[in-house]
Structures are given as structure tokens and as C-alpha cells.
Simulated scan of single mutants.
Amino acid sequence: MDTIYLNHPVDSCSLNCTPTVMALGYFDGVHLGHQAVIKTAIKIAQKLKVTTSVMTFHPHPKEVLRKQENAMSYITPLPDKIKKIEELGVDKLYIVNFTREFASLTPQQFVDDYLIGLEVCHVVAGFDFTYGALGKGTMETMPFHARNRLNQTVVEKLEANNEKVSSTKIRQLLTTGEVDDVTKFLGAPYSIKGVVVDGEKRGRTIGFPTANVKPIHRYILPNTGVYAVTLTVSGVHYSGVCNVGFKPTFHDQTTEPTIEVHLFSFNQDIYGEEVTICWHHRIRDEQKFLNIEDLIKQIHLDKEAAQSLLLS
């Protein structure tokens, strides 16, 4: 897949464009609804015997247009989004640098410069896709702005658990720790990439050594709690139990949650290694224990629960 970064104003003459079917969207998560849009574009492109392209935007419009105290977190930070889109079989990915200047384009300018100018012959997008300043362009206005220069297909909403599959819903589920439902919306378990770093090394003293994982991108972390997970390192998958939180048994207050994974039947040194954690099931909330003995008893129960859940 060719990945092309675009800055406004775009110089389409330098891009050697050929006719293409383009899927449009922000695609955070590349969830089942996004996949339906992209797969529809691929089918149409195959029928027309042209390439398939995707156009997405970075950073998120909210980061640019709204004043936020904290940097925004993502379901799929840009490197992960690129990988997931490539795995779907797309030929070309356009990543538009989202700036205030780009956001001020009229719907007509967007269609002229970023669709017609890039030789898009057919556009595919979700029913709620908008374009141009203040989102005034919609899939209903697209034929007017396209002036018969391209065709379009609108992909209607996809539902799971009787709810619309959306990035907003997935974000909500992650903030409440409902990772089982997130899997139904994403089509795969939620995952993050991180590096194993030095921790307090307390786990090994109580018989449960853990890998302390620091995310390498701005991921949305599942809500604090204990989860059944798998961890992948050097291409090998291991099952484990993960605590996301502040370790209240040992700390009165910390500012950043930590990710600690205890792997079953594992005895390797993986400090400094890049790993991927997949969240499969939530086991319980994080809690504070009165003593180490109670904590150890609960960890044994958590381990049994995780093993049972991951085998089911």
C-alpha cells in the first residue's frame, strides 16, 4: 500500500494520480462499520478495474478545532490505523494533515481539490460523513458538488448489540472497561502496543512477576480494573492477567495508571521489548486490600478466572 501525506493546498499534479475508488472517513478504530465502507470501495474498484484508495485525516479534528487541556487519545493511533487499513487490501492511503486552514475549505473546494483533483471516480462513505467548513457538506450534497464528475455510494449504519457501531461507542465502552463488547464492535479484541519497562518489582516478591508495559502511542486505556489478556512478544502469544490502575494497596495517590501483566507459564527477560496487549475479558474492578495476604489470595482467584475465560 502506498501511503501519501497531503498538506493543504494539495498539488495533485505532482502525485501521478490514476482513476480510483475512494473510501472517506476518519476511521479511528477501523471498526466493523469502517471496514464495511472500505470493503465496499474495494468491491466497486474491482468491478471498475481501478485502484482502491482511502482518505483519512490527522490529527483528529477535535484536537485542532477545540481547546483541550489534555492531548487526545485514540482507539487506533495513526501507525495502527495505517496497518489495519493496509491489511484490508487497499492500494493507496491518503493522510491529510488536518489544520484550521484545511477545515475552513468550502465543501465545493474540498470536492474539487481532494476528490476530483485526485482523479476519484467513485466515492464511498458512511451515511454520517461530512466535509467542508462546519461539516456543511454531506453525502446528500455530494452529487451537487461533484457535478457529475464522480459517482458515490453511501454505506448505511452497521449495528452490533442493537446499537450503531461507532468510534464514540467504542470509546465509551473502553472508559467503562466493557472490553468484551468492544470486541463485537471492532471485530477483534482491543489492543495496544507498548514497551516493557522497569517497575517496582513487587510482583516477583509475592510470587506473581509482572511485565510493566508503557504504551508507545496515545491509546485510550480500558478503565481501571483486572482483565484477562494475551500479550504478544517476538511473534509469540502468551495468556495472562492484567491490572490497569493505581495499585491502591501500595499507593495513596498516583497520577498515571500503570499496566501490569502477569503471564502464565512464562519465565523470560523481556525488558525493553515491544509487546502487544489484547484485552479479552474484564474480571473485576481494582480494589484496595488491607494486607498482602488478601491481595495474594485475590490474585490467585484472578488468575484462575482469566485462565477459564481465555479457554472458553
Rank of each mutant, 00 (worst) to 15 (best):
D198A: 14
Y227D: 01
A188N: 13
Q253M: 15
H280Y: 03
I206L: 10
V197D: 11
S191F: 14
D198C: 08
A306I: 07
G235T: 07
A306H: 03
G225E: 12
T255G: 09
G225I: 14
Q268H: 11
V261R: 02
F246N: 04
K201M: 11
C242L: 12
T255V: 11
K184M: 15
G225T: 14
G245N: 06
V226D: 04
Q253F: 15
K201G: 01
F246G: 13
V241P: 01
F266R: 04
L174A: 13
G225Y: 14
R284G: 03
H262N: 15
S265D: 15
T255Q: 10
V179I: 15
V226G: 05
F208L: 00
S239N: 14
V229A: 05
T276M: 07
V229H: 02
S234V: 13
L174R: 08
S239D: 11
L263F: 07
N243E: 07
E200C: 08
I192Y: 05
A228Q: 06
K193S: 12
E304C: 06
S239L: 01
A188W: 14
E260P: 01
V179M: 12
P189R: 12
P209R: 00
T175I: 14
H300D: 04
V179K: 01
E200Y: 10
V236P: 04
G240A: 08
T224E: 14
N223I: 09
K288P: 02
P222Q: 09
P257S: 09
P222F: 05
N267C: 05
R218L: 11
T183C: 13
H217P: 03
T176D: 05
E200T: 06
K193W: 08
D285C: 12
Q268F: 11
S191W: 07
R204S: 11
K303P: 03
P209K: 02
R284K: 06
T249N: 02
H300V: 01
L221A: 09
L290M: 08
F289Y: 10
P215K: 08
T232D: 08
F266K: 08
V241M: 06
I299N: 00
K201S: 12
H300L: 00
D294A: 10
E274Q: 13
K303S: 13
R218M: 07
E274K: 08
V226Y: 03
H262Y: 14
E304V: 04
H217A: 12
H262E: 06
L290W: 01
R284A: 04
V244N: 08
H251I: 06
G207C: 10
L186I: 01
R284H: 03
F266W: 04
L290K: 08
E293H: 02
T176K: 15
S265A: 15
D252P: 01
T255D: 13
E293S: 03
K184T: 15
T258Y: 05
C278E: 13
N267H: 07
I299V: 05
T230H: 10
V182H: 05
V261I: 13
A228V: 06
F266P: 10
D252N: 12
T175L: 15
C242Q: 02
E274A: 09
I277C: 02
Q298E: 12
Y219H: 02
P189I: 03
K288G: 10
I299W: 00
T255S: 12
C278L: 07
E200I: 09
L173P: 08
E286R: 05
L173W: 12
